[in-house]
């Protein structure tokens, strides 16, 4: 049974390339993907997760305002009965040259299960999802996806 993953770029951020590629990678890996696109608000994420019965919500942010944009996000999810949903965040999560370990800690404390930097390859996120959602390897991509899977 394919797992459903909700994707989106939070806040007023319009960086679209990364999420487009991530969408393709997740689909190729066998996930059901709902890409909410750029400039997605917290309520839109919550509604998307409810409507599609999401197993995981992946939040992207590349313009440096992730902390403001995700404040209260997990409270909102819990209120909507989505407290168990796996949540990841990735991108340029802090302005300037902060220590990423510190940034990771900040977002872990906010409730995200995993925190990725902007250099993360889609494969890494996929491997993490396979582990966190306890997906047997046979269910997803054991092989290179053919064009037909796109």
């Amino acid at each position: 049974m394919p797992r459903t993953v909700i994707l989106g770029v939070i806040g007023s951020d319009a960086h679209v390339v990364g999420i487009t590629i991530l969408e393709q990678a997740l689909e190729a890996a066998g996930f059901d993907v709902v890409n909410l696109g750029v400039q997605t608000s917290q309520p839109e994420f919550v509604a998307g997760a409810q409507d599609h019965g999401a197993d995981a919500v992946l939040v992207s942010s590349l313009y440096g305002h992730a902390e403001q944009d995700t404040r209260g996000f997990h409270h909102r999810l819990t209120q909507a009965g989505l407290g168990d949903v796996t949540t990841y965040i990735g991108g340029n999560l802090a302005v300037g040259q902060d220590d990423f370990a510190e940034t990771r800690e900040t977002f872990r404390e906010m409730g995200f299960d995993r925190v990725f930097d902007a250099e993360t390859e889609p494969e890494e996120a996929i491997a993490a999802l396979q582990q966190d959602l306890e997906i047997p390897l046979t269910e997803t991509d054991a092989e290179e996806p053919a064009r037909a899977t796109l």
Binding site: V17, I21, Q24, A28, P145, R147, L150
Partner: peptide, 13 residues
């Protein structure tokens, strides 16, 4: 030696 796929896109970007 690979299939044409989004990975090319990601690599090209």
């Amino acid at each position: 030696g690979r299939e044409p796929s989004f990975k090319m896109v990601a690599d090209d970007v």
